[in-house]
Computed example of a mutant assay.
Amino acid sequence: MAPSISHLFFNNDTLISGHATTQEAINLKFAIDLYSAASGQCINFEKSGILFSSNTNPSTQSSISRIWQMPEVNSHRMYLGLPSVIEANKKQIFSAILDKCWAKFHGWKEKNLSQAGRIIIIQSVIQSIPAFAMHCFKLPYATIDKIQSLTATFLWSGDPEKCSIKLEELGKTLH
């Protein structure tokens, strides 16, 4: 019987999830090996790892790791700049998006941009910063509100320093 798996493909990266059973690991490994032999595309085991649910039996974890000849990872690593697993504090996880927006606004404040120039920058740069994360996750409303506040202040004043949310305060509220 074929394993029930799910996958995500991004350029040369693949994230595969499935049930943590020895038989499914053997079946999936066989299918991947067959694909590798036919296509010439192989998994780089040095850059790969297995992340198990906390509910998975430790002996099953070690069996699957041996089958795949891949190390078990205990941390929630980043995948394409986003966390592969999200735990409780989403505000803290997505604070990097706010930091990137703030850095862009802060870098532009010295330039004397017209309002039309600020609109173009907001549309072409700032709106693209959270876009990828928003395709994968639902951002916290607080994060979206802070991005909107920074954007509105920059649009109307050109100076993010005039925003009611300063970088220092932003760091304190997020961390």
Rank of each mutant, 00 (worst) to 15 (best):
P83W: 10
P83K: 07
P83M: 10
P83N: 08
S84P: 02
S84Y: 09
V85H: 14
I86D: 06
I86K: 13
E87P: 00
E87C: 07
A88R: 15
A88V: 10
A88H: 14
N89D: 14
K90V: 04
K90C: 08
K90R: 15
K91P: 02
K91N: 15
Q92S: 15
Q92K: 14
I93F: 12
I93C: 10
F94C: 03
S95H: 09
S95D: 06
A96R: 09
A96H: 14
A96D: 12
A96G: 11
I97W: 00
L98W: 04
L98V: 03
D99S: 13
D99C: 06
D99R: 07
K100E: 10
C101A: 09
C101W: 01
C101T: 04
W102Q: 02
W102A: 02
W102T: 00
A103M: 10
A103R: 11
K104W: 12
K104M: 07
F105E: 06
F105T: 00
F105R: 03
H106S: 13
H106D: 14
H106R: 08
G107A: 14
G107Q: 13
G107N: 12
W108K: 03
W108L: 10
W108D: 04
W108Q: 02
K109A: 05
K109Q: 14
E110V: 09
K111W: 04
K111H: 11
N112E: 12
N112R: 12
N112L: 15
S114T: 14
S114C: 05
S114L: 06
Q115I: 13
Q115F: 06
Q115T: 11
A116M: 13
A116V: 09
A116I: 11
G117Q: 09
R118M: 08
R118D: 07
I119V: 13
I119M: 11
I120T: 15
I120W: 08
I121V: 13
I122K: 02
I122W: 02
I122Y: 04
Q123S: 11
Q123G: 07
Q123T: 03
S124T: 15
S124G: 13
S124E: 11
I126M: 10
I126G: 00
I126L: 15
I126F: 08
Q127L: 08
S128P: 01
S128H: 05
S128Y: 01
I129A: 01
I129N: 00
I129D: 00
P130M: 09
A131I: 00
F132V: 01
F132E: 01
F132T: 00
F132S: 03
F132N: 04
F132M: 02
A133H: 04
A133C: 12
A133D: 04
M134H: 04
H135S: 14
H135L: 14
H135A: 13
C136K: 04
F137T: 04
F137R: 07
L139W: 08
L139H: 07
L139S: 08
L139Y: 12
L139M: 09
P140F: 07
P140T: 03
P140I: 03
